[in-house]
Design a protein around this nucleic acid. Structure first.
Lengths: 207, 207
DNA sequence: GATTTGAGTGAACATCCGTACACCCAAAGA
DNA sequence: TCTTTGGGTGTACGGATGTTCACTCAAATC
């Protein structure tokens, strides 16, 4: 523990603790069932202190959405930044998603649970973030040689399928027992390939 | 109101009322946040009376899963029974799904919300039902001429993509404003076609 | 060094929660 | 007709909930 701590540092640390405690509790219940008292008990502060950081539980929910998507955006943008050949971009993206899944589990669990799970502002915030991913994916797909002839609307449909797949796969991964997660990942990889290569050009898996 | 009512009729009616009231309340909150008292208040019975019908709230959840999938199974099986040409089966299934969506909204909302939404037994029950759909879909797909050469594992991957699409689309439909539901349906139709025809054989949409 | 600021405290509140228990009374069964 | 059964009632309980208010006391500002 640091000998002294600036005021802002302290505040940031507590805020972080609240977010972490919330992610922890949300492994067992949904956000709409989250209790302020239980949350603050977990953090080690008194119920009232929560309001120094968030105006309401809803605002906490929005902060959790930001928190959850922040790191994922970073890794995906890192993939784009080192400019892989277009045909590898999907595989690379799936790879980083899988990596993120493993060590950011609470964040993904939160998103999977709350995607359609009750509290309207949170659902909408998640929806907006996913739409953003979808739009970025459209411009990525447009660069792929096989899809160069496609119109924007068709690309959007494919991107939608892709985002659907990613979200569903993440949700299943999070819900699965740890020992059955490996198969889920190879399944995700195959389905992603199936999507991008296309059913007609799809060749049966080896072995 | 009926002049007289058999004992069983009365019980069934109350049970139905509980299910309906629950579906109603679950439009606003998630199942894990459902309050027994609020529920019974809605039904018009005293809290204790609930236990004459269900041993616990969890059991209510399972009953809701059954209730939700029952009608959907019926309509999908009806499609299969009148034996459409294989290449039409997907379109027809999408059609009946869309129809069911519109007039069974509370059921689909429940499933969308609780698919990954908190209470373990409910999530698992939904997962089992969806797995069942997936397996049935595999045998349907196997009959399609374009896919005759595919292996069982590849068919399973495609079926998984399909079920994912259906569930996500239903969830988005349920969450959307009524006036923006039309576009979602045509989007679903197009994506379903895109999946089954396959990306490589996919020809850009007319217009 | 004196003053202001603000994160965290702690008691108190009204309200809701799930469940236990004894009870009622009409339908079902003898 | 008398007895049993079982859906529904009413009260009462201990405990958890969200929010209020006046407070402390160290860091930040002057």
């Amino acid at each position: 523990m640091a000998a002294t701590e600036s005021r802002q540092e302290r505040k940031d640390r507590t805020r972080r603790s609240i977010l972490d405690a919330a992610l922890d509790l949300l492994a067992h219940t949904s956000f709409s069932a989250l209790s302020l008292r239980q949350l603050t008990r977990e953090v080690g502060i008194v119920p009232t202190a929560f309001y120094r950081h968030f105006a309401s539980l809803d605002e906490l929910g929005l902060a959790l959405v930001d928190d959850s998507f922040a790191s994922l955006r970073d890794v995906l943008n890192a993939v784009r930044r080192d400019n892989p050949p277009p045909e590898e971009l999907i595989d690379r993206s799936v790879d980083v998603l899988v990596e993120s899944l493993a060590d950011d589990l609470p964040h993904f669990r939160f998103i999977a649970r709350e995607r359609y799970g009750g509290v309207a502002p949170v659902c909408e915030a998640i929806g907006r973030e996913l739409d953003l991913f979808e739009r970025e994916l459209v411009t990525d797909l447009a660069r792929m040689p096989e899809l160069a002839a496609w119109g924007a609307r068709d690309l959007a449909l494919l991107a939608g399928l892709f985002v659907n797949l990613m979200v569903s796969a993440a949700a299943e991964f999070v819900a699965a027992e740890p020992e059955s997660r490996g198969p889920l990942i190879t399944r995700l990889r195959h389905q992603a390939r199936m999507l991008v290569v296309g059913a007609a050009g799809w060749s049966p898996l080896p072995r």
